[in-house]
Simulated scan of single mutants.
Amino acid sequence: MAQPQTMRTKTAGSLFATDGKPHPLPDALMVVTLALGVLALVTAGFHHLHLVSSWAGLVGILTGAYGQFISVTTRERTLLIVGLGASALGFYLGMAHGGLFGGVIN
């Protein structure tokens, strides 16, 4: 007995990977953005680590923005926004504590 054409095929991967195709570059950018966002946010809590938090936040914002530009699935976009938010918050707190070059260039 043949299956009707209206049956949906089961997608491989995660819950929101709706097209069932691999997306290695957007997934890599998503992971990098999340990692940099966590790094920027954690190091922003320490005043003397403002160089790490501001640079990690800036690079996280840039990778997240490019990831949003080329993202395909809802999962990628959702986690990129989380990483972008953490990167931006870490960046802004790092800038408030001394900035990208604070104490290095006089």
Rank of each mutant, 00 (worst) to 15 (best):
D19N: 13
G13M: 10
L36C: 09
M1Q: 10
H23I: 05
L58M: 12
L39K: 06
L49T: 07
V42H: 00
A44Q: 01
L49S: 04
D27E: 14
D19S: 08
M1Y: 13
S54I: 07
S54L: 06
F16V: 03
V52C: 02
V32N: 03
A40L: 03
F16M: 12
T9H: 06
L49C: 01
L39F: 13
M1H: 13
L15E: 13
A56P: 02
D19C: 08
D19T: 07
S53W: 01
H48W: 14
M1E: 12
H47W: 07
S53I: 04
T9Y: 06
A28Y: 01
P4R: 08
V38R: 02
V31E: 11
D27N: 15
I61P: 00
A56Y: 00
W55D: 03
L58D: 00
P22Q: 08
L34D: 01
V32K: 05
T11M: 15
T18I: 09
F16G: 09
L39T: 14
V42C: 04
K21P: 01
V42W: 02
D19K: 08
H47D: 13
H47C: 04
A44R: 00
L36S: 04
T43Q: 09
A28R: 10
T11S: 11
F46A: 14
A12G: 13
T43Y: 08
H50D: 06
G37C: 06
G20T: 10
S53F: 00
T9P: 03
K10A: 12
M30N: 04
F46T: 14
T9V: 10
S14T: 15
A40E: 00
G45Y: 09
F46S: 13
S53V: 02
L29W: 05
D27L: 08
G57K: 03
A35G: 10
V31P: 01
G57S: 07
P22G: 00
V59W: 07
V38P: 03
L41W: 13
M30R: 04
L36Y: 11
L41P: 00
S53E: 04
L58Y: 10
V32D: 04
L25W: 06
P26I: 01
T6V: 02
G13Y: 05
L15M: 14
Q3S: 11
P4W: 04
G13D: 05
T6F: 05
A40M: 04
H48L: 10
W55N: 01
S54V: 07
G13A: 11
F46H: 12
A17L: 13
G60L: 10
A2H: 05
